[in-house]
Design a protein around this nucleic acid. Structure first.
Lengths: 104, 104
DNA sequence: AAATTATATAAGTACATGCTTATGTATTGT
DNA sequence: ACAATACATAAGCATGTACTTATATAATTT
């Protein structure tokens, strides 16, 4: 799990879509495939990349493997972003809200 | 400037290094090259990619072109990250600090 | 135990990407 | 006007990446 792993993992739109879907709730690889016009091996490979980047955790449940968002990867991005706080625009509403939530 | 442009731009370590250097202060392409073992065309191409992603602004100053960090790109990353706030770890200190800064 | 289901891995291929060398364009200095 | 400097663009090439098909592994069901 390096900065490089993370950014390369997120560089692919299919992988971002998978991650985004996973963020709506943990699920196994087959469920992730539903409605996603992607082959089984392709999904497996994408999940491996996301996993290596620590954007995703996996846990075997019988013959399924359950996947979920791994906060570690997100934390690394947040830290990367924080380095440039001097350049953040005045009105960054989404983040402002976020901060309030966290800071209570 | 799309989400895709941004993540692809940041996927390359050389480009992240250029961006990081630029974050220490605006400078022209030649200054960016100093100490960076990279050819002039390569630098120019990287800057074009960063520019298209709105991670960098450019302004011609005589025969130099001055580059600076463009907050627009950073804002897009922040918004992307904000979508996953449900998964942020409890103690994300860098961001907590950041929020305080922004929130008053 | 054999068949089925879920996922992973291997090998090959087409295309994307980051570099190079060569050349073009813009601006300044003499 | 000409040379020099700063940067951009074009074309070619080597490597990386995302897919495919084929096959392996792991767990469940009958």
């Amino acid at each position: 799990m390096t900065e490089n792993d993370i950014f390369r993992a997120l560089a692919d739109p299919t992988r971002r879509a998978i991650f985004e879907k996973l963020a709506t709730g943990s699920m196994n690889a087959s469920s992730l495939r539903d409605g996603m016009k992607i082959s089984q091996p392709a999904m497996s490979q994408h999940l491996a990349v996301l996993h290596q980047a620590k954007l995703v955790r996996q846990e075997r449940k019988g013959r399924f493997v359950n996947y979920e968002v791994d906060p570690d990867g997100l934390a690394l991005i947040a830290n990367w972003l924080a380095k440039y706080r001097a350049y953040w625009p005045e009105r960054m509403d989404a983040l402002r809200t976020l901060l309030k939530d966290m800071d209570q």
